[in-house]
């Protein structure tokens, strides 16, 4: 403890340097592998009976989960200053602006989903 308080600028301040340690890293790794295998097999099932495009939604859900664990644990966002957290989330938010406002055009065209 004493050693940490002297480095008052270190962004890893209150954290033991280990973060989640080797077992933790292996755990994250397992989640990623399971996610990959899962996404592969779910893609083979036809989920269109739920609603058209359900396959894509599931695939993206898994991808988001994988991204989140990589970000939180491998990239140490979990222990990083709020600013780091904000720039990661902020960039995604910006991307969603681009998606949303572009698609509001395409989906409301004559041939778009909401076009009639």
């Amino acid at each position: 403890m004493a050693e940490q308080t002297t480095e008052h600028h270190n962004p890893h301040v209150e954290v033991p340097n280990e973060h989640i340690g080797i077992p933790g890293y292996l755990g994250v790794f397992t989640v990623l592998v399971v996610g990959t295998i899962l996404t592969y097999y779910v893609a083979l099932m036809d989920l269109d009976w739920i609603f058209p495009g359900a396959n894509t939604l599931v695939a993206l859900g898994i991808a988001f989960t994988k991204m989140t664990v990589v970000g939180l644990f491998f990239m140490h966002v979990r222990w990083s200053p709020r600013l780091v957290w904000m720039s990661a989330v902020g960039a995604f938010f910006w991307l969603s602006i681009m998606f949303a406002y572009t698609m509001q055009d395409y989906l409301t065209r004559g041939t778009g989903f909401f076009g009639h």
């Binding site: 406002y101 509001q104 395409y106 004559g110 909401f114």
Partner: peptide
């Protein structure tokens, strides 16, 4: 040629 709805919003 952007949709009319999008033009309104923008």
């Amino acid at each position: 040629g952007q949709s009319m709805y999008a033009s309104l919003v923008f």
